[in-house]
Amino acid sequence: MNIDVTINGESRTIETEGHRRLLDVLREELGLVGTKEGCGEGECGACTVLLNGEPVNSCLVPVGQLQGASLTTIEGMAGSESLHIIQDTLIRYGGAQCGICTPGVALCAKWALEKEPDASKERLRELLAGNICRCTGYQAIVDAIVAAQESAPETSLKDAKEPGDE
């Protein structure tokens, strides 16, 4: 079947079988390998993408469901020049170690802050709980998201809080 979809702002038509996992189509057909497979059963969140603005496990979505949808993968998160502020704070606070969960974490965090800009730390942890990270103990990721949250929206990256600023 032909699936018309907007991926990272670009309209595309994908010709494939509708039952296939979105994850496989992204990685194998579209070369968008920034989306990672950690478990294949919706447990780890490494394959998280934003589908019509909401976080989904791309290993659980049959690609046929994307007809007319809008999709953001990690490749579409940064601007052409600059990183998204969450990507920036993830680096500076040590929120990325091995990096395999990072694309999913970054996208889910972007959604969480857009959905609930004033979310408490505890609430942020709840919203991110579908993304498993085995390296960081989560603290540095939480700190990074909070730092991004505390920087006013639309601020340039230079204004973002530095680790250690209090």
Binding site: H19, E41, N57, L60, P62, G64, Q65
Partner: peptide, 26 residues
């Protein structure tokens, strides 16, 4: 019949293609 897929698609990688799917989501 498939809605969110969160049950049916679990560990579907090596299961082979279904006869067909009826998409109800949305």
């Amino acid at each position: 019949p498939i809605a969110g897929g969160t049950d049916h698609m679990v560990a579907s990688k090596d299961r082979g293609a279904p006869a067909g799917m009826i998409n109800l989501f949305g």
